[in-house]
Simulated scan of single mutants.
Amino acid sequence: MGEINIRNFRPSDLERVAEIMALAFEGKFQSLAPMPREEMPRFLTETGAVYSSPFPGYVVAEVGGEVVGVLALKWAGQKRPPGEYPIRRAASKYGWRKVLKLFLGLWLLEYKPKPGECYIEHIAVMPGFQGMGIGTRLLEFGEEFARNNKFERPHST
């Protein structure tokens, strides 16, 4: 394995990040919106469930130039681009039940960080790259980010 490089998310990473998220959280997403495994990444991008724009604290891990992991941090007062949720278009393709169930499930699981708290919203590593220290490097990035930005402590649930 090559060097692990942590860098800011780019819009060109979207499809790969959606693939990583779909595989890493397969059980959660399949329970909310059952569908063939290969359709889930497109569903996540088409519904806007995976962030498509960069923001502070949204990073990817690369090995040999290939995106293999993702981390999104969240804190009170964080500046993020407005989300795009093309619900009507996604519902016409996948059905209202799946789309609404996905968003209800994600909304119920959402955590609102307290002031001074940095929260790990999600962290995922491509299954074939797990156990190689990539998740550890992403966590180290999160801890360093929290320290450098004077958060009290990193927090995950």
Rank of each mutant, 00 (worst) to 15 (best):
V59M: 03
V70K: 01
R89D: 11
E19S: 15
Y111L: 00
F29L: 08
F145D: 02
S156N: 09
L102R: 02
R147D: 10
P36T: 10
G116F: 12
P154W: 12
P11R: 13
E66R: 10
K112T: 15
R80T: 06
R10Q: 14
A22D: 14
A22F: 15
I120G: 04
W96I: 05
F151Y: 03
A49L: 08
M126R: 15
F9N: 10
K150Y: 14
K150M: 09
G83F: 08
P81K: 01
L23E: 12
M1Y: 10
R147C: 04
I134H: 03
R88C: 01
E26F: 15
C118L: 14
P86S: 05
M40F: 03
S52D: 13
N5E: 15
K114D: 12
A124N: 01
F145Y: 11
K79V: 05
R97K: 11
I123T: 02
R137T: 03
Y119N: 12
C118T: 02
F9E: 09
E110Q: 09
G27A: 13
F25P: 07
L100D: 03
M1T: 10
V59N: 07
R16N: 07
R97E: 15
N8C: 07
F129K: 11
L71G: 01
Q78K: 07
M21R: 14
M35F: 05
Q30D: 06
H155K: 08
E26A: 15
L102D: 08
E3N: 13
V67T: 15
A124Q: 01
E110S: 10
E140H: 08
R137K: 12
R97Y: 06
W107V: 10
P82E: 07
K112I: 15
P36Q: 10
R42T: 13
R97Q: 06
A18M: 13
K79E: 04
L104W: 13
G77A: 00
S31I: 01
L106P: 04
A146K: 03
G128A: 09
